[in-house]
């Protein structure tokens, strides 16, 4: 079986938004990590990951999000999340992600809070 997923990237002035669609497991997580790395190498250190179209995230997917947070920390960058469901936000807080990345309701708030 293969999970269908998609990542849309929008690079703006000084920041970039990565919007996922589909189940965030190891496969989508690794793809997301690759895209984030490419952006970091281009000099983007302020990233937003919009999870509005991702209904389910597993802990392997979250562990890859932590790797993106760590990669940005090495460049003194920031990662803000938006579009999380209540359960996803609860899980992120449990895994202490909220201490090292921002969690905002939508893209506008995520961008405004770099």
């Amino acid at each position: 079986m293969a999970n269908k997923f998609d990542i849309q990237i929008r690079a703006e002035q000084g920041y970039a938004i990565l919007e996922t669609a589909g189940y965030l497991n190891d496969a989508l997580g690794e793809q997301l990590s690759k895209e984030a790395q490419k952006l970091i190498e281009k000099g983007y250190t302020q990233l937003v990951i919009n999870l509005d179209k991702t209904a389910l995230i597993n802990s392997i997917g979250i562990s890859i999000l932590i790797e993106i947070i760590e990669a940005l920390e090495e460049r003194s960058g920031t990662l803000n999340f938006c579009g999380l469901s209540a359960t996803q936000e609860r899980t992120f807080r449990m895994m202490a992600i909220a201490k090292y990345a921002g969690i905002f309701p939508d893209e506008k708030a995520a961008v405004a809070n770099f």
Partner: peptide
Amino acid sequence: EIHSEMRKRGWGLEITKTL
């Protein structure tokens, strides 16, 4: 881990227990 409180793996059963 870089941040011990933000460990990457080993969360599965803890998440289940909490939810």
